[in-house]
Design a protein around this nucleic acid. Sequence first.
DNA 1: TATATTAATGCAACTAAGTTGCAAATATAC
DNA 2: GTATATTTGCAACTTAGTTGCATTAATATA
Lengths: 126, 126
Amino acid sequence: MGVVRKTQSVSLVLDAFNAENKAISVIDLVERFSDKINKTTVYRVLDRLEDDGVLHSFLGVNGIKWYAPCKGCSEHKHTDVHPHFQCTDCGKIDCLNVDITIPNLPNREVAGAQVLIQGKCEACCN
Amino acid sequence: MGVVRKTQSVSLVLDAFNAENKAISVIDLVERFSDKINKTTVYRVLDRLEDDGVLHSFLGVNGIKWYAPCKGCSEHKHTDVHPHFQCTDCGKIDCLNVDITIPNLPNREVAGAQVLIQGKCEACCN
DNA sequence: TATATTAATGCAACTAAGTTGCAAATATAC
DNA sequence: GTATATTTGCAACTTAGTTGCATTAATATA
Ligand SMILES: [Zn+2]
Ligand SMILES: [Zn+2]
Ligand SMILES: [Zn+2]
Ligand SMILES: [Zn+2]
């Protein structure tokens, strides 16, 4: 499963993530490639890249889907969390390299967590 | 702002939350009141109840909107977090009464966070 | 209690994100 | 170079949520 062939669409999408070191929303990708890649294809390429462990996805505010490159972040222990930070000013999202430990919950079995921290990013703090 | 009048729709919605002590998705509410309240009205009633501090909203998996009653949980400090737990088996979401402290992020200004923990709920753990 | 005022509702039409089926195009294997 | 299987584009669809506007219902006032 995942990416089997190195097609033009795959290259274009990967180039986008290599160029800027941050998360990119699907909406943004669909828009910026609108004259090169069909909307459906963008969704499918991202899907395959995620299956392949090249990208990971998560939801930003308003439930919009974002993708970011994986840097071995897919092999965390299940109670550790890879949080994301979304700037309320510029909208940018970064992967955070800190671990947030979820406390043990009595009578529950924790399998994972999604943490979205909101605030002002470095650039917007001045 | 918020709820000004105690209408039939407001009573029906509040009754639903009083009857079961858990979060309810908007989709569920729209569906279960489909013969009594118009879809648009459901959305607007929930909006007003949230403005009024009666309910709070958050996103479950797939970015679907959920609401739950507020129990003074709207007056937390901004670095403390009121997390939610969604069961991967039955889909139920509960508000968690634990505080997850977000670490200080250098050069960033944290304003809040959304934490969705996933796993098996008490009922589904057996 | 009747009337005026304003908020709330229903409806239909719309938007936006994401999905599906299928035929045509393209990458890889042989 | 040809065969095979994957990928793509397109159009049509689905689903969650929103908007404008005319009608209805709740509250205030007399
Ligand atoms: Zn910023
Ligand atoms: Zn990330
Ligand atoms: Zn459960
Ligand atoms: Zn809650």
